[in-house]
Amino acid sequence: MKQRNGTGWYAAATYVFAVGMAGTTLPTPLYGLYRGQLGFSELMVTIVFAVYAAGVIAALLVAGDFSDVLGRRPVLLAALALSAASAVCFLFEGGLPLLFTGRVLSGFAAGLFSGAATAAVLELAPSGSSGFAATAANMGGLGCGPLLSGVLAQYAPKPLMLPFLAHLGLLAVALVLTLVLPETVHRPEPRPPLRPRGMAVPRQVRPVFVPAGLACFAGFSVFGLFTAVSPGFLSETLHVGNLAASGAVAFSVFASSLAGQALMSRTGVARGLPLGCVGLVAGMVQVGCSLLVASLPLLVTGAVTVGIGQGLAFRSALSAVGERAPEEHRGATLSALFVTAYLGISLPVVGVGALSVGMGLRDAGLVFSACVIVLAAAVGFRLHRARG
């Protein structure tokens, strides 16, 4: 049964969600330091990053709806524990095994937060609220992670320890808040068995799902680029060694995505998806040009533009697929969309790392930019023709 106790619980749940998601992007500005300390290649950086997405996908497929059965608080507590365990792995890392373990645990945590925390924020929202705080907590947390670690790593001692100690402190506050949050789920007795919900795309949804999924794939691949490889672009191509600047660039993508999602209320779903694709194309053109001419301002404007496009396309895709999917298959269909998105955040960025071994990071980034431009333009053109 829902319990609404005003904006206090709403704000508390939003904080828990944001802090949990911040941990998933905390290592972004630090990958260069790990490379120098452990001596691995840019390809290995992208693989370390990508195993996070594997953890998210596994959690979504196996436990995506567990909070509907167990309640929100138990699942949130499990997610916080996994997030803390991830931070501990980074604190005590002595090589790649703990880095991989930390990233996988972080992915598991993000997968649990995605369902349970979103639901908790929406259910604790004051009457009349649109629940936009759920999206703000998700994207805002993802953006604040690299900003926090970049500032601490640049201007405070122990750059590979202090960001994770700070996050553990934030998680401790989130733990206390979670323990006192009102439970919003009436747990049935006897408890039904916990079963993986899997994913499915009914035949009648596929005409909408295919372009929506491709747009999500393209948009999330840009997230992968900026959270895994952009620090390398800044240091190697643009010769910017400031870790706070690296974190700020990653932050700008997520903050702009939030702005793009807010725009959908004005554009509507039908216009939002093709317009989002236009934003992806325009942004990646700027990112590609920034690599060609070694321009930090162009990289930043490209990050903002591509973030707005990603946010607009992503929220429009969620709405379009959610509206078309039958109620009895809606959760499984949206799971398939999220899996498509998280494949986008992982596979292409590993490709960038592999290409960088042979052709250098800048040229690999140019190839990636061209691929995203072609994919987003093709999806946008198809959607435009369908509307016409």
Score class of each variant (00 low, 15 high):
G232A: 15
R197L: 11
V201G: 09
F164I: 09
S149C: 11
G241T: 08
R195E: 15
R191T: 09
L234R: 01
A244H: 08
H186R: 15
S221E: 11
G150V: 02
S235H: 14
K158G: 10
A244S: 07
A172N: 12
Q154G: 05
V180G: 07
V229P: 03
T227P: 04
S149Q: 11
M161Q: 12
A215L: 04
F233E: 04
F223L: 14
M161K: 13
V208F: 10
A212K: 05
G232E: 07
A174M: 12
P192Y: 13
A250C: 13
L148P: 02
F209M: 01
T178P: 03
Y155P: 06
F209G: 05
A248G: 13
V205G: 08
F223N: 10
A166P: 06
C216F: 06
T184G: 02
V208D: 05
Y155F: 15
L148W: 00
V240Q: 05
R187H: 04
R206C: 11
P188Q: 15
V205W: 02
E236A: 15
L194K: 09
V249E: 04
N242L: 10
L214E: 00
R191Y: 02
S252I: 11
G150D: 09
P231W: 01
G232W: 00
P190M: 05
G247W: 01
S149N: 15
Q154R: 01
P163F: 11
P231Y: 02
R195I: 10
R191D: 01
A200N: 12
R203P: 11
V210Q: 05
G247E: 04
L238E: 00
F217T: 01
V205H: 00
L179G: 09
P196N: 06
A215S: 08
S230W: 09
A244T: 11
M199C: 08
L181N: 01
V201C: 12
E183T: 13
P202K: 11
F209K: 14
V222S: 10
L152A: 13
F209W: 04
S246E: 01
R195N: 14
N138E: 00
Y155E: 13
P211V: 05
F220I: 05
H167K: 07
V176E: 06
L171R: 02
V240W: 10
A228G: 14
N138M: 02
G169R: 08
G169K: 08
L142W: 03
G141M: 07
G219A: 03
M139S: 13
